[in-house]
Amino acid sequence: MTATPVVFIHGLWLHASTWQPWVDLFAKEGYAPVAPGWPGEPPTVEAARKAPEAVAGLGIDDVADHYARIIDDLPAAPVLIGHSFGGLFVQKLLGRGYGRAAIAIDPAQMKGVRVLPPAQLRSSFPALGNPANRRRSVALTEKQFRYGFGNALSEAESAALYQAHAIPSPGRPLFEAAFANFSSRSPAAVDTGNAQRGPLLIMSGQLDHTVPDVVSRSAFKQYSRSSAVTEFKQFPGRGHSLVFDSGWEGVADEALAWLARQGITPGGD
């Protein structure tokens, strides 16, 4: 019997290796997890910091299509789990018929979501503040990381996570998401009306600055036209770092429990 694949997709300013604890946990549970980087992403955090140009200019469609090709090569339809822009990608892919189920954690803003809280604007400003960043990679300072990712953590934990995981990322996806509602063919569009897709869970940290809870709730409401399973889970007191800070395992356990409720087992069908 083929083990059920799981594809983990990270967001901006983090390296794919951030998912390693999740990969280890899901493998222990019997799944077949992988956490591929974005196209061109260097293999380590250190290498990514030294080569910011490796991902400069990448857009939403570039990254989503990259993961679609990875999924095509898997032996079975995978579970898709994404954080931040990774959460937007898993929704796009699920809507396109990729994947057996998806979990979108603090997902980046899709077309149709119109709320724009001040905290989200401030978190995005390091990229959106300069139009030239659409073609560049952008790195966060430790202070910017604390506001966008580590605001619900101690200063010491936020600083440690920044040193361990933060990397430069392309600015283009933020511009595409920010102007999605002004474009008829935005790459940030998701087929939220697809009734044939697999089940979807959207998770939200209620203290998140980068993707505030109201943005995640608005994304959930976009699925009201679909009869496919769509559920929503909030985590009180958690910020944008909830998938890789000291409380990550509680979030992962919720993901595993939800998959079990959907009848998705590690051993596949």
Rank of each mutant, 00 (worst) to 15 (best):
G148F: 10
G148N: 07
F149I: 07
G150K: 11
N151C: 10
N151Y: 07
A152E: 05
A152S: 10
L153W: 06
L153R: 00
L153P: 15
S154G: 14
S154Y: 04
E155A: 14
S158M: 14
S158W: 13
S158P: 15
A159K: 12
A160H: 06
A160R: 05
A160P: 15
Y162D: 03
A164D: 12
A164F: 12
A164Y: 07
H165N: 06
A166C: 15
A166L: 12
P168S: 07
P168K: 02
S169Q: 01
S169V: 04
S169G: 06
P170V: 07
G171R: 05
G171E: 12
R172Q: 11
P173G: 01
P173S: 01
L174M: 15
L174G: 08
L174Q: 10
F175T: 01
F175N: 01
A177V: 00
F179W: 03
F179G: 02
F179S: 02
F179T: 02
A180E: 00
A180D: 00
F182S: 06
S184H: 04
R185N: 05
R185M: 08
P187Y: 07
P187Q: 01
A188G: 00
V190K: 00
G193Q: 12
G193E: 10
N194K: 01
A195Y: 10
Q196N: 13
Q196H: 11
R197P: 15
P199K: 00
P199W: 07
L200I: 10
L201P: 14
I202P: 15
I202D: 05
S204F: 12
S204D: 06
S204G: 10
G205M: 02
